[in-house]
């Protein structure tokens, strides 16, 4: 089984607050890794470190992706190499047409891969097919990016982007929060459909529900900036019963 990403002794801070305190994590090709942990554990910070968010300063350790040390890469370079994050709180960008934005992003990626750009008509065909599958309203692709979208619509829009961009490494940061049960099913279906032997998922969640639909290969528990425990779905059962305290180091 081959490694997609290897995170070694990762320390990171936001401002001068130390948040990640030595994360070691191996994420495998073709596998789904669930990350759980209490609020403030550093889950979002870890995601941000992986995608190169400028707020997060890595002070020690490395992130190796597809055998390349990407710790100091620009965010767009990581994205073009196939790292995608569905944001916990997608930002609104007024006046930027959703479809136009997506086509620009896709064509940037295609250029990176040495493929010709898709023209507007070709792209629209692809887009319409995807939004139908996701049960999104068509008018949403003509609106400004995330502007005035409901919480659930924003999440669906993140999934739509994932489907269009076909990344190799997908981080889903609390994709399930704020979704009603139907939307949660749609999102889970979309994710399951994208599970391939070449793609890795890192799913951050507080809830068991989405893991029932998606069935992770591994579960990691994060607390206080460190990985406390790694295992299978049985960890979730224990968590459900006892809470995070059962994994506390004594």
């Amino acid at each position: 089984m081959s490694t997609m990403m290897k995170i070694k002794d990762l320390h990171a801070q936001i401002g001068d607050k130390q948040i990640l305190k030595g994360i070691d994590l191996e994420l495998l090709k073709g596998k789904v890794h669930a990350i759980m942990g209490p609020n403030g554990a550093g889950k979002s910070t870890l995601s941000k470190a992986i995608v190169g968010h400028p707020d997060v300063e890595v002070t020690k350790g490395t992130i190796v992706y597809k055998d390349k040390d990407i710790t100091d890469w620009e965010p767009e370079e990581r994205a073009l190499e196939g790292i995608f994050m569905a944001f916990q709180h997608p930002v609104e960008i007024p006046g930027v047409n959703n479809a136009y934005f997506l086509r620009t992003a896709l064509n940037a990626k295609r250029k990176h891969l040495g493929l010709p750009p898709l023209n507007a008509a070709e792209f629209l065909r692809l887009l319409k097919e995807k939004i139908k599958e996701l049960g999104m309203r068509e008018e949403m692709i003509h609106r400004s990016l995330n502007e005035g979208f409901s919480g659930g619509e924003k999440k669906l829009n993140e999934i739509l982007q994932m489907e269009i961009l076909e990344p190799d490494f997908v981080i889903l940061d609390e994709i399930d929060s704020g979704l009603d049960i139907d939307a949660l099913k749609k999102v889970s279906e979309a994710i399951n459909k994208m599970r391939t032997p070449d793609r890795t998922f890192m799913i951050i969640t507080h809830y068991r529900k989405i893991l029932d639909y998606i069935e992770p290969d591994f579960v990691h528990v994060l607390k206080n900036g460190k990985v406390l425990k790694t295992g299978g779905i049985e960890i979730v059962d224990a968590l459900e019963k006892e809470g995070y305290k059962i994994f506390e180091e004594v």
């Binding site: 620009e74 965010p75 767009e76 994205a79 944001f87 930002v91 620009t104 992003a105 982007q161 961009l165």
Partner: peptide
């Protein structure tokens, strides 16, 4: 905002674009 810029860059769009 930093967040708007970052969102677009995370999708592979260069900073100046």
């Amino acid at each position: 905002s930093e967040e708007q810029l970052f969102y677009l860059r995370q999708r592979g769009i260069k900073e100046e674009d």
